[in-house]
């Protein structure tokens, strides 16, 4: 930065512009995060004092015969939870977005309706779906019976093998609007000339999509994936609303968020353990950090962004 006489001056305006964000972010995000990381290296004594214990919490989390199955189980469930979102939510989101950009009637209506669950409270979503799937008064069974599938109905939320996919699909139902809107905006950002030129050159619909649209929205697919990843590994509210902190049956819907909650705040007669909770939180942070770094180095740097 040079002043009128050509001398280097300190760029005060940078401080002014960045200052508020830096202060707020440091105070409310960085400081608690660092504090929580530090806490994971301590352990709490019966008289409520904290002593430094090095990696003891982590060793216990990974190796203890009671703790380790919970941690690995939660991690495994979380990966499944994420995969279901990647395989169901994002492709369907893309499909819906592709349908929305075609010239059909009622697009505005569907765009709004499909996005609606996303802005609803998770408590309402959990409540509605529990009622729908309820084996006593739920509408799911009678609807299935009406089309002759009544015998396939099961109390899915209560069966260990189905509870996790069921909750994951409910979460997909809720959040489908986000990838849909992101893909939608990316798709309408593609200039008509490109598509028209392709059609003139004799491309089929499929070719137009895979050869022209898809490469152009690839960066958006990356962003949607990483948003899904971060969102899923931070997920907690839906499972807690529907299955409680125990994430039953038999921990089958237990993910990192519920494990953290149980550990940190305690449950029924079990008291919370802040340092062990911080250890779980640290692991969540590291897992998410690793995922984001992988994305940044392996995907974002390589993906081609076209200037349109």
């Amino acid at each position: 930065m040079l002043d009128l006489r050509g001398r280097r001056t300190f760029p005060t305006f940078l401080v002014v512009f960045l200052g508020p964000a830096v202060v707020c972010y440091t105070l409310f995000m960085m400081y608690p995060l660092v504090e929580s990381l530090v806490l994971s290296f301590f352990s709490v004594q019966p008289d409520n004092s904290y002593i430094f214990s090095g990696f003891a919490n982590f060793v216990r989390l990974f190796t203890d015969s009671d703790t380790a199955p919970r941690f690995w189980g939660a991690l495994k469930n979380n990966v499944i939870f994420f995969l279901i979102h990647m395989l169901v939510q994002n492709p369907i989101g893309l499909l819906l977005a592709s349908l929305l950009v075609t010239k059909g009637k009622g697009r505005g209506f569907y765009r709004t309706v499909l996005f609606m669950p996303t802005v609803l409270s998770v408590v309402i979503i959990g409540f509605i779906w529990q009622l729908i799937l309820n084996p006593l008064w739920g509408v799911a069974e009678s609807m299935m019976r009406a089309v002759g599938l009544g015998s396939l109905f099961q109390p899915w939320l209560g069966l260990p093998e189905y509870a996790l996919p069921a909750t994951a699909l409910i979460s997909v139902w809720q959040f489908i609007g986000i990838p849909m809107i992101l893909f939608y905006t990316a798709l309408i950002g593609i200039p008509d000339e490109l598509i028209e030129a392709a059609v003139v050159d004799g491309c089929t619909e499929g070719q137009v999509f895979w050869r022209i649209k898809f490469p152009l929205i690839l960066p958006t697919i990356g962003i949607v994936s990483i948003l899904t990843f971060v969102g899923n590994f931070n997920a907690f509210d839906l499972i807690y609303t529907m299955k409680g902190a125990f994430a039953g049956p038999a921990y089958s819907t237990d993910i990192m968020g519920t494990l953290f909650y149980r550990t940190f705040f305690g449950q029924q007669l079990q008291l919370g353990n802040p340092t062990m909770g911080a250890t779980v939180a640290t692991m969540m942070f590291l897992i998410i950090l690793a995922g984001v770094l992988l994305y940044m180095f392996l995907f974002q740097r390589r993906v081609k962004t076209y200037q349109l």
Binding site: R60, T67, F246, Q270, N273
Partner: peptide
């Protein structure tokens, strides 16, 4: 057994009693 790593008996009873009925 409220310290993490020593399972809480009451919570364990919830888990196993539900699992036995299931």
């Amino acid at each position: 057994g409220d310290q993490y790593g020593a399972p809480n008996l009451e919570n364990e009873l919830w888990q196993v009693s539900a699992a036995v009925i299931n």
